[in-house]
Amino acid sequence: DRYEFNINGVHFTIDDAEEELIKLIEELLKRGARAEEIEEVIRRWER
């Protein structure tokens, strides 16, 4: 599934997002994580 979200006006799209990654990102968003922090999480996840 495609997952899309915005952080401070920056648009992100993840194709074939796994449910666990989506939950992790949503938790980070609730905590007010910065875009750079979430980008790093996504990079690590994709390795």
Rank of each mutant, 00 (worst) to 15 (best):
D1N: 15
D1K: 15
D1F: 10
D1V: 15
D1M: 14
R2E: 03
R2M: 08
R2W: 07
Y3L: 04
Y3A: 01
Y3V: 03
Y3C: 03
Y3S: 01
Y3D: 01
E4K: 03
F5K: 01
F5I: 08
F5H: 01
F5M: 04
N6F: 13
N6G: 04
N6R: 04
N6C: 07
I7P: 00
I7A: 08
I7T: 04
I7S: 05
I7E: 02
I7V: 15
I7H: 06
N8L: 05
N8R: 03
N8I: 02
G9N: 05
G9K: 01
G9A: 02
G9Y: 02
V10K: 09
V10P: 00
V10T: 09
V10W: 07
V10N: 05
H11A: 10
H11Y: 13
H11C: 04
H11R: 08
H11L: 14
F12L: 04
F12R: 00
T13C: 12
T13K: 06
I14H: 01
I14V: 08
I14M: 04
D15K: 08
D15I: 15
D15G: 04
D15Q: 09
D16M: 11
D16A: 14
D16Q: 13
D16T: 14
D16W: 14
A17G: 06
A17V: 06
A17H: 05
E18G: 08
E18L: 04
E19H: 10
E20M: 08
E20N: 07
E20S: 08
E20W: 10
E20C: 06
E20D: 10
L21W: 03
L21Y: 02
L21S: 00
I22S: 02
I22Q: 03
K23G: 10
K23M: 12
K23H: 11
K23F: 13
K23V: 12
L24Y: 09
L24S: 09
I25M: 03
I25C: 03
I25H: 00
I25P: 00
E26K: 14
E26G: 10
E27A: 14
E27K: 15
E27F: 15
L28K: 07
L28C: 05
L29K: 04
L29P: 00
L29W: 05
L29C: 03
K30E: 09
K30S: 11
K30N: 09
K30C: 07
R31Y: 15
R31Q: 09
G32M: 05
G32F: 09
G32C: 05
A33H: 05
A33W: 06
A33V: 09
A33N: 04
A33S: 10
A33T: 09
A33K: 05
R34N: 14
R34L: 11
R34C: 10
R34D: 13
A35R: 08
A35E: 07
A35N: 06
A35M: 12
A35I: 14
E36S: 09
E36I: 07
E36P: 10
E36G: 08
E36Q: 10
E36C: 06
E36F: 08
E37A: 06
E37W: 05
E37Q: 09
I38N: 00
I38S: 00
I38H: 00
I38V: 13
I38Q: 00
E39D: 07
E39P: 01
E39M: 14
E39W: 13
E39Q: 11
E39R: 09
E39N: 07
E39A: 12
E40F: 10
E40S: 09
E40R: 06
E40A: 08
V41C: 10
V41S: 06
I42V: 08
R43D: 05
R43V: 09
R43Y: 10
R44N: 13
R44P: 01
R44C: 15
R44Q: 13
R44F: 14
W45C: 01
W45T: 02
W45Q: 01
W45P: 01
E46P: 06
E46N: 11
E46Y: 15
E46W: 06
E46V: 10
R47I: 12
R47L: 15
R47T: 10
